[in-house]
């Protein structure tokens, strides 16, 4: 168990490093520029009207306080960390006076739901079919699936989501293409609401799965076709072990570990894809919130979302890494 403790500590150290570097980048980007966010915000609000200079000065002071831009650079840096530590980025300017953290917490479940369902489907499907394709190498249907999946895989999420949107919203309009549920439907644990949420999630999930499955399929097929040539598999086959059992318990189980590690490593990209897909489908998650914040010039909301996404992804990767040794006894001692 001591080895596991050491492993946990090392992984936790990595998590802390990710958060530290990420927040520093966010601070650096927002502060090491010649552009003053306050001037920009004031310019945006006073563009079409005459304003009293004194009122502008007061707005300037108020915004400076709101954004935590008072004092020296070092003081701002400390203040920035304090905000991150308690996940309080002040009130949002575009949805005043709702705090940024409330907006983020409201959007997070949608992103999390979309991301986890799409990832479960594409990871599960890719690994299952990839394993089968590596084992039954002459199967035509699996070969065909491989060609299609790897052909779709290099297409970026945005383009894929856009194509799906055009196909199902314009060419053959059968599914809702925007939002998370029917607008006039009251939220609650009713069947109608549930059904509407399900319908609205179909296209975003579909476009994520179309792009996401290929990589897992290819990875699993390569791993399995390597493992199949190992002596212990030949031995099991000669020993008359049921082929299905060989594939599931002897071959795929061994190949699964690199795929779980791969999942932890690619979480950043998966999150990225989910956020982008939300933008296309107007799904009320973090991605959409981020874009609206940028359009509205909401400084604290943009910084809040960027920081929170880094922390959330790092945390999810940490969780996967901590679960991994429980699945694979070899990692526990290594």
């Amino acid at each position: 168990m001591a080895a596991y403790t050491l492993y946990v500590l090392r992984r936790f150290g990595q998590f802390v490093l990710v958060v530290f570097v990420g927040i520093n980048i966010a601070f650096f980007v927002t502060h090491a520029t010649p552009i003053d966010p306050i001037t920009a915000a004031i310019a945006a609000t006073t563009r079409f009207s005459q304003s009293d200079p004194q009122a502008v000065q007061m707005t300037r002071e108020a915004l400076r306080e709101l954004y935590g831009l008072q004092g020296s650079l070092w003081q701002q840096y400390v203040a920035f960390w304090m905000r991150v530590a308690v996940a309080d980025f002040g009130p949002s300017l575009s949805a005043f006076p709702t705090p940024v953290s409330t907006l983020i917490w409201r959007a997070l479940p949608w992103t999390f739901g979309l991301l986890s369902i799409a990832t479960l489907i594409s990871w599960g499907l890719g690994n299952l079919l990839g394993g089968l394709a590596g084992y039954y190498r002459r199967n035509v249907a699996l070969k065909l699936f491989g060609v299609v999946a790897s052909g779709l895989q290099p297409i970026p999420n945005y383009v894929m989501a856009f194509v799906v949107l055009v196909l199902f919203g314009y060419v053959w309009p059968i599914l809702p293409i925007t939002g998370s549920s029917q607008i006039n439907l009251p939220q609650g644990w009713t069947l109608a609401y549930f059904e509407s949420v399900f319908q609205h999630a179909l296209l975003p999930v579909l476009s994520l799965v179309l792009v996401g499955t290929g990589a897992w399929f290819i990875g699993m097929r390569a791993l399995v076709s390597n493992i199949v040539t190992e002596d212990y598999v030949t031995y099991a086959e000669l020993g008359g072990v049921d082929r299905r059992r060989i594939l599931i318990s002897y071959v795929m189980r061994n190949a699964l570990m690199p795929q779980v590690t791969g999942l932890a490593l690619s979480l950043g990209l998966i999150f990225n894809g989910a956020v982008i897909t939300e933008v296309v489908f107007g799904y009320p998650g973090l991605g959409n919130l981020l874009i609206r914040a940028v359009y509205a010039g909401d400084y604290s909301l943009v910084i809040g979302i960027a920081s929170m996404s880094i922390i959330a992804v790092a945390f999810a990767a940490l969780v996967i890494d901590l679960v991994l040794p429980l699945l694979d006894p070899r990692v526990r001692t290594a």
Binding site: V18, L269, F271, A306, I310
Partner: peptide, 9 residues
């Protein structure tokens, strides 16, 4: 693990 999109935005 950094998600590039939020950072680029």
């Amino acid at each position: 693990v950094f998600p590039p999109f939020p950072i680029l935005v």
